[in-house]
Design a protein around this nucleic acid. Structure first.
Lengths: 192, 192
DNA sequence: ACCCACATGTAATGTGTTACATGATTTT
DNA sequence: AAAATCATGTAACACATTACATGTGGGT
């Protein structure tokens, strides 16, 4: 039988909007719409998804038995489908939490590609691309810091909130590091 | 004509392995195989792709006229297809470099999801997940630092190499920030 | 009138992964 | 003899985005 060896390719076990949704719903039962709102805040900073994707994924998770649904009528508003995590869903979430993902999360940063092709264009193009991103990152950092001082600083935190706070701290440090880098980068580019 | 407004959804103009490949090939013409090697190093740190995806994308780019191919016979080895960027391809790359991507790059970090669900499991599970990632990030940081001191430190750099160096600096600062965060996080978790 | 928030979806397309497939040469 | 490197690809599937679609009620 003739086929050679190069088979041990990647195996990212992550790939899981599923588990992000289970996590968000384990807090409190919610509708797809609610989730797509919430996911723009705390948890969604680390795992992004559009509302279409969320609706599809919720339907799958329900079929699979990890979620249950209940249709709730509302006065003056469309009905909503409120999802909750089942016992099987919770089991799956806990299982996933113990398995080790061998890869670091992949990065897809267009600005870095632009950097690597920077010599092909006027330095002003690169400078302005960096400055534009820096402005957006600064906005995000400010938002994070506000959340920190409003909801976390100087308060006694439950274990759950403590973990949330660590997530926020990760966001803060990430943006700070990016902004420091951008200063270094702009200083060097300016000198040309 | 009856349909309402909520239409102004996201519009990430990034999504571009295409441009990562154009960038890599603008340096020197290469085969898909060469690219899949190179992409594990410098540029690939910021834009990941498997060899299958690269082959498919190269074929598309050639059809589109942004790349040209030349089959090169080799002694004792399979033929290879060497791709180069065409004039149209270079035009497209430069065009892309000037357009503004309104979104910050999306993050998909499973560890952060685990954090948010941390209260559902024993703190040891979280602690060990963080430690495992920290070890991998430390390895990556060491590799970056070695590249820095071997190929960039104390040398006069061309514009092209200068930009590459800034990319590397971004990688270094990113990993440093992550590791500092992990110390903070572990210190807090340990106290429980 | 128009827009926004609420609320849920389908269809088509595009991007990315996993598994399968081949086959010569070089290293262990 | 087994395994790794070189080199390219197809097929099936899973994940994600864009565009389309509907309809109520409240604010400007």
């Amino acid at each position: 039988m003739g086929y050679a060896a190069g088979v041990n390719e990647k195996e990212s076990s992550s790939m899981s909007l599923k588990h992000a949704l289970l996590t968000a719903l384990s807090g409190k039962p919610q509708s797809g719409y609610d989730l797509s709102r919430e996911i723009e805040g705390s948890i969604g900073f680390f795992w992004n998804a559009s509302h279409q994707q969320i609706y599809q994924e919720l339907a799958k998770l329900e079929t699979q038995g990890w979620l249950g649904v209940r249709e709730v009528a509302q006065a003056g508003k469309p009905d909503k489908k409120v999802y909750r995590v089942t016992a099987a869903g919770l089991r799956e979430l806990k299982r996933w939490m113990t398995d080790d993902d061998p890869d670091l999360p992949p990065i897809k940063d267009g600005l870095m590609i632009k950097l690597f092709a920077g010599h092909l264009v006027d330095p002003d193009v690169i400078r302005s691309a960096i400055e534009t991103q820096a402005a957006r990152r600064q906005v995000r950092l400010n938002r994070f810091r506000e959340i920190e001082s409003r909801f976390f600083a100087g308060q006694t935190l439950s274990l759950e909130r403590q973990y949330q706070y660590l997530g926020l701290r990760r966001g803060i440090r990430g943006e700070e590091a990016w902004l420091e880098w951008s200063k270094e980068a702009l200083a060097i580019i300016q000198k040309k």
